[in-house]
Nucleic acid binder design. Structure first.
Length: 444
RNA sequence: GGAGAAGUGGCAGAGUGGUCGAAUGCGGCGGUCUUGAAAACCGUUGAGGGUUAGCGCCCUCCGGGGGUUCGAAUCCCUCCUUCUCCGCCA
């Protein structure tokens, strides 16, 4: 019935403000053109105009019906049977007309909604233009990339992990891109997750959170995995989706909420399993546990006031970097260029950790500011202090960090000539006081 | 899996065919009082959309969808969700 976006609520609200597009079509095209969407405003505005015309016609018919409705009771009361019958007939006609006009308005509204739903977020002005990851701009480096005096190995080749990182058995259980961890390696993996959580919770003020990993469709729309990237995630036979990151659950905790401004920012972190189909990355990173269908990640999510999201972005980036510094792992931080930017992000920092075995930096964290893009999809708002209209919150997410990849980094950076691995000091306490994994795979 | 109950504004919670966008309370905002604050009192306060230079006017919304009726928060159907009890179970 309603012509508003309400009937589309289940799939989320449009993530672009149609009024903004109306007022600044050229600016919108320019911005969205930077992420390869071409000039789309003309099509959007044509549809929007048709939609608004249909809404106007529908509402005019409804107003006429409402006016007649007021008179009909009076006619009845006055005993004016002729007038009563005339108005009844009129309302009957209007009913059909309204149904027809509403249907048209709703059809156009849905069409516009779907068009907007498929458009990526707008990059911020300071995001560099570029085609792909080669055009990302480095903003800082920390630490000396470790180059040992011997030929370094990749993590899965190290003597210390041979017993504890079993791809063959995982393949038997599940297939490729899975791993079974045992003994010292499993414990190191757990230690890393614990360490990250402790830092974020005890020192950084994030609220430790445990969420479901199975979610309904709406949540996946909210954080823009749907509708465009359905093939990247897994769905259960009864319709749940396995989260590809706990960004989905943490961010959607404020879905449909009217928050108090004083409650912002809301800072959360979660350690969870993540599931990705890795469709489209066949043949990429096939050895080792760099790219798995199932992996663990400590995720950070912040819900902020619109004026505070950019500083929050920098804060979150520093928190992720801090984990690497404490682990003594060299890294570089880059700003993703327009060509590498994710669908829902306005700006993204990637942190790349040094991997001696690969002789390169590899992504270990990605921190994005989404502006109100996801908030619009989720209808997540706050009431400004001092009254006034509700506003959309801003959402941010970032890895803090990917646990599996961090394990790789610790192993490769700590490797010794004999195949053993020296472990970072901050982890010793999590490992029963042990400080290394011997070439025999045993902690000592 | 079986049996029940319920979904109303930022929140709580009335309302069972028109006079209901919706009592009341809390919260918010403005004011009186106060050195200031609290309390008390008075007033005010839903969301989305269309239209307008603006004032304003109009439309929709009581979980979603459909139906009955001149007329639906209220009656009927259906779906979704939540809760309670029983059973099973980590």
């Amino acid at each position: 019935m309603p012509i508003t976006a309400r009937h589309l609520k289940a799939r989320g609200l449009p993530m672009h403000d149609i009024r903004m597009i109306r007022d600044n079509p050229d600016a919108f095209d320019a911005a969205i053109g930077r992420v390869g969407a071409g000039a789309v405003s003309a099509g959007i505005l044509a549809l929007d105009e048709a939609r608004r015309g249909a809404i106007g016609a529908s509402e005019a018919a409804q107003a006429a019906r409402n006016a007649a409705s007021k008179l009909v009771g009076k006619a009845k009361a006055d005993g004016d049977e002729a007038e009563f019958q005339r108005l009844r007939a009129l309302m009957g006609d209007k009913k059909e007309e309204i149904a027809r006009l509403e249907e048209e308005a709703r059809r156009l509204d849905t069409q516009l909604h779907d068009m907007l739903l498929g458009l990526p977020n707008l990059p911020l002005g300071d995001v560099p233009d570029g085609a792909d990851e080669d055009d990302n701009r480095e903003i800082r480096r920390w630490g000396e990339p470790k180059v040992p005096g011997f030929q370094p190995k990749e993590h899965f080749e190290l003597a210390a992990v041979q017993a504890g990182m079993d791809f063959a058995t995982a393949a038997k259980l599940s297939g490729s891109r899975f791993v079974v961890l045992r003994g010292a390696v499993a414990r190191l993996h757990r230690a890393l997750a614990q360490f990250m959580l402790d830092v974020h919770v005890n020192e950084n003020g994030l609220t430790e959170t445990i969420t479901p990993v199975l979610v309904r469709e709406e949540a996946m729309y909210g954080t823009n995995q749907l509708p465009k990237f359905a093939e990247d995630s897994y769905q259960t036979t009864n319709g749940w989706w396995l989260i590809p990151t706990s960004e989905v659950t943490l961010t959607n905790t404020v879905r449909e909420e009217m928050l108090d401004e004083a409650a912002l920012p809301i800072r959360m972190c979660a350690h969870s399993q993540c599931f990705r189909s890795e469709a489209g990355s066949a043949g990429k990173d096939t050895s080792g546990m760099l790219r798995q269908h199932q992996f663990e990640k400590v995720e950070m999510v912040s819900i902020t006031h619109p004026d505070r999201s950019l500083e929050e972005h920098d804060r979150m980036t520093r928190l992720a970097e801090d984990i690497l510094q404490r682990l003594g792992l060299a890294y570089r931080t880059v700003v993703l260029c327009t060509g590498d930017l994710g669908f829902g992000a306005r700006k993204t920092h990637d942190i790349e950790v040094w991997l001696p075995g690969q002789d390169t930096y590899r992504e270990i964290s990605s921190i994005s500011v989404c502006g109100d893009f996801q908030a619009r999809r989720m209808n997540a708002r706050f009431r400004p202090q001092g009254g006034g209209k509700p506003e959309y919150v801003h959402t941010l997410n970032g890895s803090g960090l990917a646990v599996g990849r961090c394990l790789i980094a610790v192993l490769e950076n700590g490797q010794q000539a004999d195949g053993s691995v020296d472990l970072p000091g901050v982890l010793h306490g999590y490992l029963g006081g042990n400080s290394r994994i011997g070439a025999d795979g045993v902690l000592s």
